[in-house]
Design a protein around this nucleic acid. Structure first.
Ligand code: MN
Ligand code: MN
Ligand code: ZN
Ligand code: ZN
Lengths: 139, 139
DNA sequence: TCTTTCATTAGACAGAGTCTAAGATAGGAT
DNA sequence: ATCCTATCTTAGACTCTGTCTAATGAAAGA
């Protein structure tokens, strides 16, 4: 039983085979998939699962606060189950692969009071960009 | 003559009335517009300008490195002419207002080698989020 | 088992952005 | 000044990502 499935049960969420496949795929992943990648992999276990169910399920997980929705490039959203671990993201400009990374410093400490323009600042997230090993090799 | 138009000329970029209108609109902007906002405002000066030209022009400016493409919300991309000033962004969760901000530390320094997963990392940008003075007051 | 309520599905729809191919034009050549 | 050609602009079709609808299916409690 995956940790994410357990957390979702606690929300009195009706468990179905489709939801279980999606939750088990997300659980523990430090690479964040798009909805279509999740659909493609889910189809290997459950060929008749629909695109609508994948989107419905992901949106419900986000609404329950158990999964975070990421969007860096204006293309596909990616889904991140690691909501309880404070971290940032490293993205490949070639293929869009998105990984969790951990930094030594809190970026909020680098924003002086006179740069806050009167805002109440609650969150800071860093997006690192570059080329993954595969995309560097491919030129 | 706007500064951005001057910079674009240096790239041997053919100057047309359409491109000039778009460049002059971006130049010096403190808010970052979407393509549709740019189209709408360009139509006030040049009613026959097309959507394709706005997208073509913005994409070319980005390719030339004179404009940056931003995407915070997963909806429309926004275009930022301030590429020569290294900066980050502060976004109001209430109204979406986006401000340029400057930090004391380079976030790249906070990513250790063993957190780079074999990537060649070239860039780091911070997205700060919170409530602007207006939205804090409004509850 | 029965029932109710909620989930799943296919496909239509929508928004943002890209592509195509035909006509127009910037800017160099003469 | 005019011509020429490579490049730009345009309308609208198209793609991609994601949402919605309404008919069918199934989880879970009685
Ligand atoms: Mn993550
Ligand atoms: Mn900016
Ligand atoms: Zn890559
Ligand atoms: Zn605000």
């Amino acid at each position: 039983m995956s940790d994410l499935v357990a957390r979702l049960r606690r929300h009195q969420w009706r468990m179905t085979p489709q939801r279980r496949v999606i939750a088990e795929m997300l659980d523990g992943a430090h690479v964040h998939y798009t909805a279509d990648e999740i659909l493609e992999r889910a189809c290997e276990h459950m060929p008749e699962i629909s695109r609508a169910t994948v989107y419905n399920t992901l949106n419900e997980m986000v609404a329950l606060g158990e999964v975070a929705e990421l969007n860096f490039d204006g293309r596909s959203k990616r889904y991140d189950p690691n909501v309880d671990h404070d971290h940032h993201h490293l993205i490949c400009d070639g293929c869009g692969t998105t990984r969790d990374v951990h930094t030594t410093a809190d970026p909020l400490d680098g924003l002086p009071g006179d740069e806050r323009h009167g805002f109440t600042v609650t969150e800071a997230s860093i997006t690192f960009r570059g080329r993954c090993p595969d995309c560097v090799d491919a030129g």
